[in-house]
Design a protein around this nucleic acid. Structure first.
Length: 359
DNA sequence: TAGACGTGGTT
DNA sequence: TAACCAAGTCT
C-alpha cells in the first residue's frame, strides 16, 4: 500500500493553504479556535449529501429561530420539519430534533466530546461523529466524507472501486490526520476536495499536495475514485389530486412518519407504481368519492417530472371541485397559506403545475 | 449489507 | 438533456 513519505509535512502544507484560502462559512471558527458544538452539529447534519450553497440559508434561519439546542429541543417536531422543507432527506430533520431532545434532557444541552458517544446519537454516523469531535472538541478523529475519499484515492493512486475500498481510504486518511489542529485539518481536506481536487477538472496546478500526489504523477487523477456501476433508475407513475373546495382551499395530507418524504405534507395522490394510470382507475384512489364532487376528475395537461435518488417520478395532476369543505382525510388549506406547511420540492412542483394548468 | 432516502447545480 | 454527484445515515 502506498504511504506518504512525510505525512506531517503534507498536513502542514494543507493547513498553510487553509489559513490563506479557506472559505468563510457561518459555522466556522477562526483558524486555531474551536467552533460551537451546536453550530458544528447543525451544519454537519445539514451538509450530509447536500451542497454548501443549499445549506447556508437554512443554517442561518435555524440558528435565528432556535439559537440553542435547548430551544430546538423545545420546538414541536412539525415546525422543525416545516423549516427543513426543501433541503431533502427528511429523516435528518426528525433525527435532528430527536438528537436535540436527547442532548437537552440527558446532558443539559452539552454534546459529548468523544466520537464514540457522539456516534450513539440519532442522525450522527461515522462521519458526523468524527467531524464534531475534531471541529468542536479538537480531537484527532479521522474525518472521512466523499471529498476525503476522492482526495485520498488520488493522492495514493488507489484504483480499486468504491465502496469496497473505503477501509483503505480511511487508513490512508488516518496516516495523514495530525494531532495539532485536527479540526482545521479536517475542514481543510474537505475544502481541498470541494474547491481544488474536484470530481471533474481538478486544479492540480494550484494544489498544495501536487508534488506528493501519486494519482497526478500517473496521470490518472481524473478517473479516481473508481466506482462500481449503479443500477439504472426506473420510472414510476402516479396521479396527484388537486381538490378545490368552494372557498378556494385545497386538500393536503400528512405523509406517514417514515419512508419517502416521511412526515411531510403532500398533495394526496395514488400510489406511485411502475405502470401508468388511467384517470378512471386513479379516481378510485382519490381522497373524495365521485358523488361529493361537483363534476368529475379532469386531468391537467402535462405532468410533473421529479427525480429521486433511486427512481424518476412521472406525476399527473387530476383536478376537481367540490362543495363547501366536506369531511375528507386531510387538511383544507387556503391557496395563499400553502407556504406555511413547508411542502417538499416535489409537492411545490405539483402546486405550480396545478395553478398553471388547471384554472 | 445493499438499498432507501431529496434536491439542485454542473456538464 | 440526462447523468453525475454532494460535508451520509439507517435498516
Amino acid at each position: 500500500m502506498w504511504t506518504p513519505a512525510a505525512p506531517d509535512a503534507l498536513a502542514a502544507a494543507l493547513l498553510a493553504w487553509y489559513d490563506r484560502d479557506r472559505r468563510l462559512l457561518p459555522w466556522r471558527a477562526e483558524p486555531g479556535q474551536l467552533a460551537d458544538p451546536y453550530r458544528v452539529w447543525l451544519s454537519e447534519v445539514m451538509l450530509q449529501q447536500t451542497t454548501v450553497a443549499a445549506v447556508q440559508p437554512y443554517f442561518t434561519a435555524f440558528l435565528k429561530r432556535w439559537p440553542t439546542i435547548t430551544a430546538l429541543a423545545a420546538a414541536p417536531v412539525e415546525q422543525v420539519m416545516e423549516a427543513w422543507a426543501g433541503l431533502g432527506y427528511y429523516a435528518r430533520a426528525r433525527n435532528l430534533h430527536q438528537c436535540a431532545k436527547t442532548v437537552a434532557q440527558w446532558r443539559q444541552g452539552r454534546f459529548p466530546d468523544e466520537e464514540s458517544a457522539l456516534r450513539q446519537l440519532p442522525g450522527i454516523g461515522d462521519y458526523t461523529a468524527a467531524a464534531i469531535a475534531a471541529i468542536a472538541f479538537g480531537r484527532p478523529a479521522v474525518v472521512v466524507d466523499g471529498n476525503v475519499e476522492r482526495v485520498m484515492a488520488r493522492l495514493g493512486a488507489i484504483t480499486e472501486p468504491l465502496p469496497k475500498v473505503k477501509p483503505r481510504l480511511k487508513a490512508l486518511a488516518a496516516q495523514l490526520t495530525p494531532e495539532t489542529r485536527p479540526g482545521d485539518y479536517a475542514q481543510a481536506v474537505m475544502d481541498l476536495g470541494a474547491t481544488i481536487c474536484t470530481p471533474r477538472n481538478p486544479a492540480c496546478g494550484i494544489c498544495p499536495w501536487r508534488d506528493a500526489c501519486a494519482g497526478r504523477a500517473k496521470g490518472i487523477e481524473a478517473s479516481l475514485p473508481a466506482r462500481l456501476e449503479k443500477p439504472e433508475r426506473p420510472t414510476r407513475f402516479g396521479i396527484a389530486f388537486w381538490l378545490l373546495a368552494k372557498d378556494g382551499s385545497v386538500l393536503l395530507r400528512r405523509r406517514p412518519p417514515t419512508g419517502l418524504l416521511g412526515g411531510m405534507m403532500e398533495i394526496p395522490s395514488t400510489p406511485w407504481r411502475t405502470e401508468p394510470w388511467n384517470l378512471d382507475e386513479a379516481a378510485a384512489e382519490a381522497p373524495l368519492a365521485p358523488a361529493q364532487l361537483r363534476d368529475g376528475w379532469r386531468l391537467a395537461p402535462g405532468a410533473v417530472r421529479h427525480t429521486f435518488t433511486h427512481f424518476h417520478l412521472d406525476l399527473g395532476v387530476a383536478v376537481a371541485r367540490t362543495g363547501a369543505s366536506p369531511q375528507a382525510r386531510g387538511l383544507w388549506c387556503p391557496l395563499d397559506r400553502l407556504d406555511e406547511h413547508g411542502l417538499p420540492t416535489l409537492m411545490r412542483k405539483v402546486v405550480r403545475h396545478a395553478l398553471a394548468k388547471a384554472y
